[in-house]
């Protein structure tokens, strides 16, 4: 079979498998990025305005997650979390369950993303000129509304470059989930390559798919950043 037959969407081609792997990867990356944003927003506000204990705990979280290699974190979190859930289920008289790979992947990568997002968003919030927040306070804006309507849009322009990086890292980190047997793009590629011995063709194809994903994402984030910075005079970039 030539490369094009190997990459055909219908079996015996493996293209369909690769695309399904891509869909799984994107799905997990999307979920993990979203979860990371939620954790990061809470984490950033906690670090900036929380009490001492909150700040210490968040400091511990961001330090550990950023210090330990992601592969090890994934293995620890995946097996520890699966084990913990199962022990709870067993203790309550239930039977061992298989945790969905997608949910576990999202949870594990989301926790990792959350640590980095905490720092990205904390920096972005600090970059908002304090006067803009003060003006809103002086006009009697309640705190949650102020965070949502003033701080969030004002910090977005500062946060987007860092968040775009996090998203790209998320898409590629899904490859690490191959170690726990999850069928994302890299895993599918390895299987196709192993079965056909056409290593070069499949890894080149996978690389091209990651590249396209990155290019599309970068274009999207550039659009969002331009919108977020709509109030700024154009600077030469």
């Amino acid at each position: 079979m030539g490369p094009f037959d190997l990459l055909a969407l219908e079996p015996p081609g493996w293209g369909g498998n690769l695309l399904r792997g891509l869909a799984n990867s994107v799905q997990i990356a999307f979920g993990a990025f979203g979860l990371g944003l939620l954790i990061g927003t809470a984490g950033a506000y906690g670090k900036l305005y929380g009490g001492k204990i909150t700040r210490d705990l968040l400091g511990l979280y961001t330090t550990i997650v950023r210090a330990v290699p992601e592969l090890i974190l994934i293995l620890i979190l995946y097996f520890a979390v699966t084990d913990l859930v199962n022990q709870m289920v067993l203790a309550m008289g239930g039977e061992r369950i298989q945790i969905s790979g997608v949910l576990a992947g999202i949870a594990v990568l989301g926790v990792v993303q959350g640590a980095y997002a905490t720092e990205v968003l904390r920096g972005a919030i600090l970059a908002v000129p304090p006067g803009q927040i003060e003006a809103a306070r002086a006009m009697g804006m309640p705190p949650v509304k102020l965070a949502w309507r003033i701080t969030l849009p004002a910090m977005l322009g500062f946060a987007i470059p860092g968040l775009a990086n996090l998203w790209l890292i998320a898409t590629k980190d899904t490859a690490l989930l191959a170690v726990v047997g999850f069928n994302e793009l890299t895993q599918e590629t390895r299987q196709a390559a192993g079965a056909t011995k056409a290593f070069f063709t499949f890894f080149l194809a996978a690389g091209a798919i990651y590249l396209v994903l990155t290019l599309v994402s970068s274009w999207g984030f550039a659009r969002i950043e331009a919108w977020a910075r709509r109030g700024e005079p154009r600077r030469s970039r």
Binding site: P129, Q132, E134, A135, G140
Partner: peptide, 29 residues
């Protein structure tokens, strides 16, 4: 909050919201 709405404050450094147009700044609160 109610009392702050009855006191219009003007700052040395203007402190307009940069991501909102002039009109949006005025009608925000």
């Amino acid at each position: 909050e109610r009392i702050r709405q009855s006191l219009g404050m003007v700052f040395q450094s203007f402190n307009l919201w940069t991501h909102k147009t002039v009109l949006e700044n005025l009608i925000e609160v």
